[in-house]
Structure formats: C-alpha cells, structure tokens
Design a protein around this nucleic acid. Structure first.
Length: 480
RNA sequence: GGCCCGUUCGUCUAGCGGUUAGGACGUCGGCCUCUCACGCCGAAAGCAUGGGUUCGAUUCCCGUACGGGUCACCA
C-alpha cells in the first residue's frame, strides 16, 4: 500500500445514512486523514428500484453534518469518476466482454426455474446447493437469455489477511461460479464493487463485518482480472439490544434524526469512533485527537450493542464544555423550531451559559429555557405551594428588596435576600422558591441570582406582580 | 444445514502468561446546596463452559454451548 492510501465509503442510496454506515464512513475518513490519504465517496446506485436522488442528497447532507468531507466523489469530482455506479455501466459491460472473450467467464443459459428446481432438490436431499456448472464448458451460443458467470477455481483455497480479523481462508468448494451479469446485461454488486475499487485505485477496503463472507468471492474476480487486490479491514457490527444487527426496530438509526434531536456532530463522531475502536482508557476525544490516534490495530473484533446512553452523556459533556457564544449558534435553529422569539445573540449566549450543564441535548436546552424567551404560564401546583399562604408574604418582601436594591447583581442581591431569610429565621429556600416560581413559572431553574440578573429589575417586578395577581392570598389557588 | 466470525461487569471497553482484572456509561448510597442540575466521594457488578499446553492461564491450542453473519439474476 502506498503511504498516501486511498480509501472509500460506498453507500447505497436506498435510505438515509444510518449509524452503521456513518461509522464505516468515519473510520475510512479517519484512516485517510491520519495517513494523509484520499477519502473517496462513491454512490452505489445500481439498485434502480430502491435508489433515489433524495436519499443520495440525505446521505451527503448527513456526511457534511458530521464533518466527513470527501476528496473525490459527488459534487467535487475527481480523476477516477464518475462516482455514481449508474454512470459506469459501459465500463462494466466492457470488462464482462473481456472476461468472456478470455474464457474466464461464460454464458449460462439455465433458467431461473431450472435453478430453483435444482436448489429445491438439493434442499430435499439435504445437500448443499451450488450451481452445477452445467454451462461452464458449453460451446454453442443459442439465441436465448443468459447470465454471465465467472469461472472460479475448482479446487484449492482462497485466502486473505484481514487487517482486523487476521487470516481468513475458505475452500473453493464453498464457492461457486457466481453470476456477474444478469440476463438483462446489468452487473451485480459483487462485480461492480470490485471493478470500481480497482478503477478508483482503492488500497484498503474498510467495510462492515458482513463483507467478510463476500471477500473470497470478490477475490476470485481480482484473480480472473489479474489484479492485485487491495487490503481489507472488516468492522464488527453495531448490534441492537437483542444482539442482532442494529436496525430501526431497535432505535432510530438515521444520523439526521440525531441531528434533529439536538446532538452535536462532534459528540456523534466521538461516539461512533468508540464503537469497536478504543484508545486505552480514553473516552472523550476531539476530532483532531481522533485523527491523530486512529489506527486499525485498535479496532476490536467483537460486535457491540449500540450504547445509546453513552451518546447522551458524550453530547452532554460536549455541550457543557462549549463556549456559550458558539453553543448559542448551534441552539439558534432549535429556538426557531420551537416557535420561540429569538433574542439578541448575547442574550442567547447568556441563556446557554446558564443552562449548559442542565441539558443533554440542544432540544432539551431550549425546552428547559422557555421562560427565558417568553412569559410562560405558572405551573398550578408550584403556584399553589409558593404563591399563596406564608410564602406569599416572603415573596412580597423579596419583591420590595429587588425594587429597593441599587442593582440586581448577585453581589447586591445575595446579601439582601440572605438578610431577609435571616430576619425571618428561615432558610434561603423559603425566599428563593417563591421567587423562582414567580419568575420562571416552575420550581427548577438556574441559581436564583442568575435568574434575577438575567431578567433585570423591571422584568422581575413585572413577573412577580403578574404571578401574585394570578394566585389569591389564601390557599384557594388560582383566581381563574 | 454448510461455511465464516465472535464471546471480560447490565452496556461500551482496557488487558496482548504472573494484575487486588483497570476505565467509562448506567444503577445505587453519601456529600455539596436556594430548586433542578453540575461537581466530589463511595458501592454493587465481569473473564460462557469443558479439556489440554505451562511452574502458572482472562491471555495460547482443541472441543462444547451461545450469539451473529453469509450462502440470490439484493446491495
């Protein structure tokens, strides 16, 4: 392998990018960036039925969101394009003809019905079915539909050294003369993937564990073509809680879903990297650290369950560590989506600073901050408890203290409110909770001085007055 | 079923012949405290199983069990 390796990610646009695909993309990207190589993106859109341009766009969007930029591929081009398989058909046909001409492949006139019959028979006799090579040495070319099959070696073994799993060896008897072109002339996946990897000069194929069983078959094609195969590295699966391959019945698997739920791309990347890869005891990585520390040697062989809790934690860590102004930029779209009025940038950053160690996602951050953006209804139970009876008296005194204070900074409010509490022989909580309910509508919020300072004197007084008006003096509750 | 791969706390994992088997998430308990969080301290929790090899196996080899994958004119 050259010291500037070329690797690729080759998704099929039959859906948007899912967690497993994203991790495969990430590992390839990390490998390329670590070695100063080239990351190629290729779209495997030969399945006309299920591939759509919308899915392709969704995949590109997800990749961009994750920050996995490709050096060659859709929208950026490159010397080995086109990067859509649907546009490479001519090339495939050409190679199929060549293989046929060289006698390395042959036309098979067996009908699907015949093949199905033989398969059923084998099954009935409890024999392993393998194509019986009826047409392998056939000389004539009747005017009938045919598929093209590759002549695979009759005996011997096919072996390769997987960079993750080590030496893999299978007997040729386990293989068969596989179809490389369907009766309509279109090539099959195992064929095109090999050809594209050759043409795009891929040095290392890093893909999911399911590729492991395909590799020997693909190797027979490299052999027939007389081409030195690339290196292979297969990645252990990501599993669902029931330990089968992760799918949407286990958890949302679309990367874009996590974006919309308020996860940060860096958290996602960190999370993805740690499934099946590790670096000693380290859990939290910046993107740069991942690039620097990534290596195939540290990829494990064991499939692992999707650790959703860890993603949440990682996201939380990220949010907490972010500069409030930068966090505010990220939060902005979520404020708009929630239908809340967008405050000036510095005010939004202020909110972020007050809430960033209370929210696990950006969606949650906005959700627990609604009262900062707009006046929200007071929780009836909280109002009942803290805006009536004895609490009400304390709140009135707190109101007076706010009104009388020279300013509403923590430096002046703290002694004022603590003095009030001391005067009544109660804990600060007796003062802070009624205030909190009046100001925020609920019983959970950042520190009371932070809240007061954020709103400012006028807004505090207004909110307190409104709150008091909504609840009566006695314990009767709301006036309605 | 044939073939291929895998198996360390509930989960993600470190370990690469001798360790009190380490970390993290989660869980539970405590501390802090104006609420909610944060933070801090602590606890419970693991080498699938049977044989070898070896002075000594979580670690190396074989079997068993369990799990996954793959065997298409899908990708």
């Amino acid at each position: 392998m050259s010291n500037r390796p070329r690797v690729r990610f080759a998704p099929s646009p039959t859906g948007s990018l899912h967690i497993g695909g994203a991790r495969t993309a990430l590992f390839n990207w990390l490998y390329a960036r670590h070695h100063g190589g080239t990351f190629v993106l290729r779209i495997e859109d030969t399945d006309k039925e299920r591939s759509t341009p919308e899915n392709t766009q969704a995949i590109l969007e997800a990749l961009r969101w994750l920050g996995l930029d490709w050096d060659e591929g859709p929208e950026v081009g490159g010397p080995y394009g086109p990067y859509f398989q649907s546009q490479r058909m001519e090339r495939y046909r050409e190679v199929i003809e060549k293989l046929l001409a060289e006698g390395k492949a042959y036309r098979c006139y067996c009908t699907p019905e015949e093949l199905e019959r033989k398969r059923a028979q084998a099954q009935a006799e409890k024999r392993q079915y393998r194509y019986d090579r009826t047409c392998r040495d056939r000389e004539d070319q009747p005017d009938l539909p045919y598929t093209v099959r590759l002549k695979v070696p009759l005996e011997g073994t096919i072996a390769f050294e997987d960079r993750v799993y080590g030496r893999i060896e299978v007997s040729c008897e386990a293989l068969q003369d596989w179809i490389i072109a369907r009766s309509d002339g279109t090539p099959v996946y195992n064929f095109v993937v090999v050809l594209d990897d050759i043409d795009m000069k891929i040095d290392l194929v890093m893909r999911g564990e399911d590729g492991l069983n395909n590799t020997p078959t693909q190797l027979t094609l490299y052999q027939a073509l007389g081409v030195e195969p690339p290196a292979f590295a297969h990645l252990p699966f990501i599993l669902g809680p029931d330990r089968s391959k992760l799918s949407k019945r286990h958890a949302p698997v679309s990367v874009l879903h996590y974006r919309d739920q308020g996860f940060l791309p860096d958290a996602m990347v960190n999370f993805l990297a740690r499934i099946g890869w590790s670096y000693g005891d380290q859990e939290v990585f910046t993107r740069e650290e991942l690039i620097e520390k990534f290596s195939i040697e540290n990829i494990g062989k064991t499939a692992g369950v999707f650790p959703a809790d860890k993603l949440v934690w990682l996201n939380f860590e990220r949010i907490r560590a972010m500069d409030p102004a930068r966090l505010a930029e990220r939060v902005k779209p979520f404020v708009e989506k929630a239908g809340l009025p967008l405050p000036p940038d510095d005010r939004l950053a202020w909110i972020c600073r007050l809430q960033q160690d209370r929210a696990k996602t950006l969606v949650e951050l906005v959700e627990i901050s609604r009262y900062f953006f707009t006046r929200t209804p007071i929780d009836p139970k909280a109002g009942q408890k803290f805006l009536t009876g004895p609490s009400r008296e304390l709140l009135l005194e707190a109101r007076a203290a706010i009104e009388a204070a020279s300013d509403v900074s923590e430096a002046t409010m703290k002694p004022a409110l603590e003095g009030l509490a001391a005067k009544h022989g109660v804990g600060l909580g007796k003062i802070a909770q009624p205030l909190r309910v009046a100001l925020t509508g609920g019983t959970a919020s950042p520190g009371i001085y932070d809240v007061i300072e954020f709103f400012g004197r006028e807004e505090c007084l207004r909110r307190i007055d409104e709150a008091l008006a909504q609840f009566s003096v006695d314990s009767g509750g709301e006036l309605a």
